Amino acid sequence: MAQEYSVITQSLVTINVSSSLNSFGSERRFPKDLKIAELKDKLVLLTGASVSSMKLELFNKEDKLVCPLDNDEALLGSYPVEDGMRIHVNDPNAKVGEFEDVSKVEKFELSADEYAKRADSVRAFKERNKMGRFKEVTPEEQQRLDEEKKIKEQKEKEKAESMKIGDRCEVQVAGQPSRRGCVQYVGTTDFKPGYWVGVQYDEPVGKNNGSVKGRQYFQCPDKYGGFVKPENVEVGDFPEEGFDDDDDEM
């Protein structure tokens, strides 16, 4: 007489699925009246394992092995499976990480000229709707923008020219703690337009040694140098932090 299998718990169960083929897992909800053979078919789509070599193991919430799910004709619910448990899919014939290696995936590449010709791109959408850099600017608006730019550049130049090499200073950039140091360079640079102030910091909180992209603007130890916009620099009586000028101390 053929053996009969039946569901011994609720009709649906939420299970975590892991696999020997990849490092990620997923949570899925399965009916308890699903045969193990049918479950394997579904797990092929989730893990990439082969039905013919797939081995299933059930782990409890403490991640301890409960039992193998080794009877293809048995129902999932005939095993002591509960919400939150894990089914691990092991396929010894598959290569580990095979479906995570994107180095072999052929990448679609499009040149700038080809992209510009496309009518279904984000660029084309912005161009049609006059958005971003494609926004139309009236002559009056352009004149206002040019004037604002000139005013900003003039203020930047005046602020820079108010500083001189050797001035003690404090640098305050939005979102960063204030830093103290000494002005070592004032002027324009090759790396970005406008005026810049080269600072030798009192501590190694900088990004360079006074050199940027092969040009040496000033000399200082590595990690003590930095360049900031004049608006972020204040010169004045800023002694080195951590030093006490008391005559009783040497």
Rank of each mutant, 00 (worst) to 15 (best):
K64V: 05
S26F: 07
L58D: 01
T9Y: 15
A112F: 15
K32P: 04
V105I: 12
M1L: 09
D246L: 03
K207T: 10
G132Q: 07
G226K: 01
R128D: 05
K159F: 07
N129V: 06
D246F: 03
Y5V: 11
Q184S: 10
D113K: 15
Y201W: 07
N93D: 12
E62N: 13
L56C: 13
F99R: 12
R168I: 00
S20P: 04
Q172W: 05
F191C: 00
K117G: 04
Y217P: 01
S50H: 12
Y5D: 04
P177H: 03
R144E: 15
S178Y: 08
N129P: 05
E170N: 02
Q200S: 11
L65E: 06
V122E: 14
Y79K: 07
M54Y: 02
M54A: 03
D202H: 14
V66L: 06
F30D: 06
Q154R: 09
D91R: 02
M85R: 00
R179C: 04
P193V: 06
K207P: 00
Q143V: 05
V235K: 07
E147Y: 11
E114C: 10
K32V: 13
Q10I: 13
N129C: 05
G48K: 03
F238K: 00
S211L: 00
V212F: 11
E161M: 08
N232G: 01
T14E: 05
E141Q: 14
E170C: 08
N129G: 04
G132N: 05
E241A: 11
Q176D: 12
G214I: 14
V51T: 13
S121A: 02
V17G: 00
R29E: 12
